[in-house]
């Protein structure tokens, strides 16, 4: 394991940024956000970013192609942004796991080349957690917040930052940095994770019963009643993956772009069928069925949530996946 003195963290950032663009979680207009590092930029004190790290691979809006029509000729332009190698520092274990959930969707054949391009160019440096929020429940989903994974894992312990490469990409990156002392990381105090109030939420039940059992549960009606259909939960969620493809007439050509979509919206997947989910109950049900039942059904039982707790903190009416999971299990609200 390599050791870097924390009081020289800015030097580490400078060294990384000398290699390629470096993103760190920093406060921008009062919000923690993955931001391109500039000299002097400090890491946020917040545990995690407001929006998730998926933004760097699957941005909210992205150009796909442009079409220029001259007479009967259609000229197709590939107008995607050039992506160069970049590093993300400070990704938490939950967000790091979300990449593998997204990969199973976007990298499966036929792979989404826009997403793949960014994934290929990225080196992910994770950061272990030691001061979780009460809304964190990564551990209930089998994620170890103290072994965060990624290409390089980092730990803060005492006055040091400990770094360990997990992949070839990670090793290659660390080799380019100034020489570092080697050493072992002291064992940190992990007892706080045993006190997390949501550590025992049971997500295993969802594989025990048939899909329709959950779909037809009587609890959806009441759970969804006060949902505003705002989609905040889907936009801050690191594992939400839906998008819509739109055309925009610029006057000289047609720009085709994609933007995030949300199953909480009335026109979600309307392009496929005109009467999809008529009320908020069906839309709401889609979100949670997808995370808890459909995704695991399609991906060897893996739950489509990483327990980051963002939806718990952000929902205007405080309805969220934990309340839903508990209510579904109990069968009543």
């Amino acid at each position: 394991m390599k050791i870097w003195k924390l009081d020289r963290l800015q030097d580490l950032f400078a060294a990384l940024a000398g290699e390629r663009t470096l993103y760190i979680p920093a406060d921008v207009a009062g919000q923690a956000k993955f931001t391109p590092w500039e000299p002097g930029m400090e890491m946020t004190k917040a545990l995690n970013t407001n929006r998730s790290a998926k933004d760097l691979f699957f941005p909210q809006v992205e150009d796909l192609a442009a079409f220029k029509i001259t007479g009967r000729q259609i000229q197709v332009e590939d107008n995607r942004e050039d992506v160069e190698d970049f590093v993300i520092f400070g990704v938490r274990a939950c967000d790091a796991r979300s990449f593998s959930i997204l990969d199973k969707v976007f990298l499966e054949e036929p792979a989404d080349t826009y997403y793949k391009n960014r994934r290929d160019h990225a080196t992910v440096m994770t950061l272990a957690c030691s001061r979780p929020e009460a809304t964190c429940f990564c551990t209930a989903l089998g994620i170890d917040p103290q072994a965060p994974g990624g290409d390089v894992s980092c730990w803060v312990e005492g006055e040091n930052l400990y770094l360990q490469a997990n992949t070839q990409k990670g090793e290659a990156l660390l080799e380019k940095l100034p020489a570092m002392e080697e050493g072992e990381k002291p064992q940190g105090d992990a007892s706080v994770f045993d006190r997390l109030p949501l550590k025992d939420v049971d997500f295993s039940v969802f594989s025990e019963k048939a899909l329709l059992h959950w779909f037809n549960s009587p609890v959806w009606e009441e759970l969804s009643r006060s949902c505003l259909g705002c989609g905040s939960c889907t936009f801050v969620c690191p594992t939400c993956q839906c998008y819509d493809v739109k055309d925009f007439d610029t006057g000289t050509k047609v720009k085709r772009f994609r933007c995030w979509d949300s199953c909480m919206y009335s026109d979600f997947t309307m392009m496929a069928h005109g009467t999809n989910r008529p009320t908020q109950k069906e839309r709401f049900r889609q979100r949670f069925m997808h995370k808890l039942v459909y995704y695991p059904n399609n991906h060897d039982g893996e739950i489509g949530c990483v327990g980051c707790g963002r939806c718990l903190r952000k929902c205007p009416i405080s309805m969220n996946i934990v309340k839903v999971a508990k209510a579904l299990k109990e069968g009543s609200v």
Binding site: L228, G229, C230, G231, S232, F235
Partner: peptide, 16 residues
């Protein structure tokens, strides 16, 4: 610009 550029267009403000 700084404030409004944070908007993710979730529409929570409108819906509430």
């Amino acid at each position: 610009r700084r404030e409004l550029s944070k908007c993710i267009r979730c529409n929570a403000c409108r819906n509430v």
